[in-house]
Design a protein around this nucleic acid. Structure first.
Length: 485
RNA sequence: CGGGACGUAGCUCAGCUUGGUAGAGCGUUCGCUUUGGGAGCGAAAGGCCGCUGGUUCAAGUCCAGUCGUCCCGACCA
């Protein structure tokens, strides 16, 4: 048999390396994360996909709460007159705002924007709520949907309507606002590392990549297998820009009236797109255990004359669930091989097999999704009495291994470049994250973009005097350049 | 929003050039045999040929418009 024919055959999922776009879309649909809806640019988030979102939500929300934030909910619609107040902000979002112009059968006298983000409506409310320095800080987050009239869309990465969380805080001083902005950046970084198993670069955005109306924007940036970067979350220090536009003032301890300093920050379901693309393989998804809606699926193997495995399985399921493991029993009338393939496409981290052999021996077989079939450590057989401990341990191993693989990819595709020609060529051919000393000039960035398609992803402090690799001017920062999603 | 491709069964597609009875594979349903890597045989169901209009005795097929999808750019989380 040829090497080609020995490869596992996966129906409906093209090889990841051939065409990442085709693979990505096929996997999202085939794993039943999303369906296309009869609405342009929108998707239905199916139960398995929503399960991913719920886990992201639970993990992030816990971190927000632990750092003193509370959840609230603000309206979907924003009156046009309010939206227009912050000039830079309006200009940034104008091309992608959708408008409600009619209510019932009557034309509205004032158009209502469907929120593309909620700085405006939340800022307006903060102006009413905040009077004294004793009212600060205000630390509020909301989980909601937003709408942006996108021209080209893909599941999770860019849809017109998407789910996200947006935090909005108000502070008495610039230093406190900056501290908050960075604290949230750390939370996103930690979430990405420990839950999504996705190493990222965190840093500040260049001027041209900054959020409309922000003083500084910070981001975490992940690297995708095709060498393009994916901005996975942003945290904005808005300074007093929004406070001045929406008149958010407070009486300080020194009896003077001052504008507050605000921040805003968000992570969307785009993060799930990053997880799908970064971790998946030719057999489908590989979901980090901490995000997986189903962490372990029990597949009983029965024969017509021997159905004992099916009888044993519910007790295994109960044991796992009692230990807090998100387990599922697949007792459908399908062949085992069919179920193996099905759950692999869906990226369930562990499969627990119990068949006649296991029943005889009092064991179960645990198979890891992150490893290839036959790879060392891919499967282990353990006594039934040890199932909870063994599954827990294996889940941790999968989580750690997915991170390690993604980390290896990021490190091996980050290039510290000193020569201009090499820099431009690596930007052009999507080598990965191209790390250079940079002059921080918008003209320089614009030139690189027009030449190669790459822009700065984010910046961090310069460690030693150097010249900008792109243009030769004195460098003022280090920058990661890459083409981006 | 520019360039390109495409909308026919749940899915992947053939049929269109040259107008004349709606097709295949996979999937689905039922039955029997199977079950440690996507089973076999038999039977069945399943279609406003994206939508609107035009040409024609006759349109899946030709023409126009429209909506949607995918790819490549520009824009964006």
């Amino acid at each position: 048999m040829s090497e080609l024919l020995k490869q596992p055959v996966v129906k409906d999922v093209p090889p990841k390396g051939d065409d990442l776009s085709a693979w990505y879309t096929a996997v999202c649909l085939r794993a039943e994360l999303v369906s296309y809806a009869p609405v342009r640019g929108c998707v239905v988030l199916r139960p398995f996909g929503f399960g991913l979102w719920e886990n992201l939500q639970r993990e992030l929300d816990a971190r927000f709460k632990a750092s003193g934030h509370e959840n609230a909910y603000f309206p979907l619609l924003i009156p046009e007159s309010l939206l227009m107040k912050e000039a830079e902000h309006v200009e940034g979002f104008a091309p992608e705002v959708a408008w409600v112009t009619q209510g019932g059968t009557e034309q509205l006298t004032e158009r209502l924007a469907i929120r593309p983000t909620s700085e405006v409506i939340i800022g307006t409310m903060y102006a009413q709520w905040i009077e004294s320095h004793r009212d600060l800080p205000v630390l509020i987050n909301q989980w909601c949907n937003v709408l942006r009239w996108e021209k080209a869309t893909r599941p999770f990465l860019r849809t017109m309507e998407f789910l996200w969380q947006e935090g909005h805080t108000a502070h008495a001083s610039a230093a406190q606002a900056r501290e908050e902005t960075l604290k949230i950046l750390d939370i996103y970084h930690d979430f990405s590392d420990t839950v999504a198993a996705l190493p990222v670069y965190a840093g500040v955005k260049s001027e041209s990549e900054r959020f409309p109306g922000a003083v500084e924007t910070y981001s975490i940036e992940a690297l995708m297998p095709d060498g393009k970067a994916l901005q996975s979350a942003t945290s904005h220090d808005l300074g007093q820009n929004f406070a001045k536009a929406y008149d958010i003032t407070f009486a300080d301890a020194d009896k003077t009236i001052k504008y507050v300093y605000t921040t805003s920050w968000g992570m969307s379901w785009r993060m799930l797109g990053a997880v799908i693309m970064a971790h998946g393989d030719d057999r489908g998804l590989r979901i980090p255990p901490k995000l997986a809606p189903v962490q372990a699926v029990i597949v009983p193997i029965v024969r017509s004359e021997d159905r004992r495995a099916l009888e044993k399985a519910p007790a295994l399921l109960a044991a796992l669930q009692k230990a807090g493991i998100r387990a599922r029993l697949d007792d459908r009338d399908q062949k085992p091989g069919w179920k193996f393939a099905e759950w692999e496409i869906r990226g369930v981290p562990l499969r627990v097999e119990i068949g006649p052999r296991d029943v005889g021996n009092g064991t179960v077989t645990i198979v890891r999704r992150d490893k290839r079939k036959g790879e060392e450590g891919a499967s282990r057989t353990v006594p039934i009495a040890d199932i909870v401990r063994a599954v827990d341990a294996a889940l941790e191993e999968v989580q750690a291994n997915l991170y390690a693989q993604a980390h290896e990819f990021l490190v091996s595709h980050t290039f510290v470049v000193k020569e201009r020609d090499e820099f431009l060529e690596r930007c052009r051919n999507r080598s990965g994250m191209i790390d250079i000393p940079w002059c921080r000039r918008s003209e320089c960035e614009a030139f690189v973009k027009s030449e190669t398609g790459a822009t700065t992803r984010n910046l961090r402090p310069l460690d030693a005097d150097a010249r900008c690799v792109a243009c030769g001017e004195p460098a003022r920062t280090r920058a990661y350049f890459a083409q981006s999603y």
